[in-house]
Design a protein around this nucleic acid. Structure first.
Lengths: 186, 186
DNA sequence: GTCTATACCTAGATAGAC
DNA sequence: GTCTATCTAGGTATAGAC
């Protein structure tokens, strides 16, 4: 694997476990086994690195959602797989979805990066909306009100659940918080 | 007002708008109108400041919840007031509940502070649980499953909704995400 | 493409005069 | 209690040799 990809992989790991502000080029250099000056050859600034990270993650994540749609014909199956995706992204409480990790970043990201992040959120909300709309027809989810409202609520819940689980360093917090969502599957 | 309290007020403002890692003693000094060295006289380290902030906020917030309990006899009224509390804490998308702001802090806080934060989360979850338990008896909230699960879900949802609204710098995101919770009031 | 060396800045924190 | 001055550590980023 080339150095550029190795850097991106390690950086993703660091962002998700410590946050974008929580690691330095020095940390990344140590992890990859090169000197920090060399990183600048691949990603000129940390802002450039942020954009590369979000862009790649968005693509990969949306592919996963497409796979779920292809494999699960029912709304209930899709929602449960979605929850599993966020649960697995936590790696037992030590990690966050990259999207969540960037959402809580304090430093101002470059406009390109925030635009990608916004687009990412919008894509996921859109996908969830289709799931809840499907549920109105196939009846595999309990108590669906408006698909759009349900989608935003579900997204906020999984993101909040990740934050709380990481803050408490306890992955079971995530499960506790999404239990009512899981229970809606028929 | 004494300098110590003024510092705490300004610091709370900064934490909630920029995050605990997002402001420095230099920023705080400028805002209050003294030199940064002087801050150390009141709060020896930034860790000490974090503890003072969380401790005070926890007390104030729990008083608010007690007031809600006293004023609203029904579960629906209590939940709606709770949601208003979190909505108002956002100040139009530029701010977070201090509890949420600290939950997303990257740097390791001292043990005293994380313990306070944990206790805070536990207190709020406990309060919400009593609201949903009440709903099982007074029937003013739709579709209540287990009070404990509902409490954790509601807390994760409001916290996630704040994060998403702040990331998008759009307060209406908060409303969109908690709409299904509001709609459960009968 | 990777290295050493370094520039430049900002952070939290301390010493000691007033 | 507040100040000026300073320390130490760490961050991002660049220059130029190899």
């Amino acid at each position: 694997m080339n150095t550029k990809t190795t850097l991106l992989n390690s950086a993703e790991d660091l962002v998700r476990s410590r946050g974008f502000d929580g690691f330095s080029y020095s940390d990344l250099a140590t992890q990859v086994g090169i000197r920090k000056a060399s990183i600048h050859h691949h990603y000129k600034t940390k802002a450039d690195l942020s954009l590369a990270l979000i862009t790649r993650y968005r693509g990969v994540f949306m592919e996963r959602l497409a796979e779920i749609s292809a494999q699960e014909p029912r709304a209930s199956g899709r929602l449960l797989s979605f929850l599993d995706l966020y649960r697995d992204a936590m790696r037992g409480g030590r990690s966050l979805c990259l999207c969540v990790a960037f959402s809580v970043t304090q430093t101002a990201l470059p406009k390109d990066s925030t635009a990608q992040l916004e687009g990412f959120h919008a894509d996921v909300a859109q996908w969830l909306e289709t799931v809840f709309r499907l549920a109105l027809h196939d009846g595999t989810l309990r108590g669906v009100t408006t698909p759009r409202a349900e989608a935003h609520a579900a997204l906020a819940t999984v993101e909040g659940a990740q934050i709380m689980a990481r803050a408490a360093e306890d992955a079971t917090r995530f499960e506790a918080a999404i239990d009512t969502l899981r229970a809606r599957a028929i």
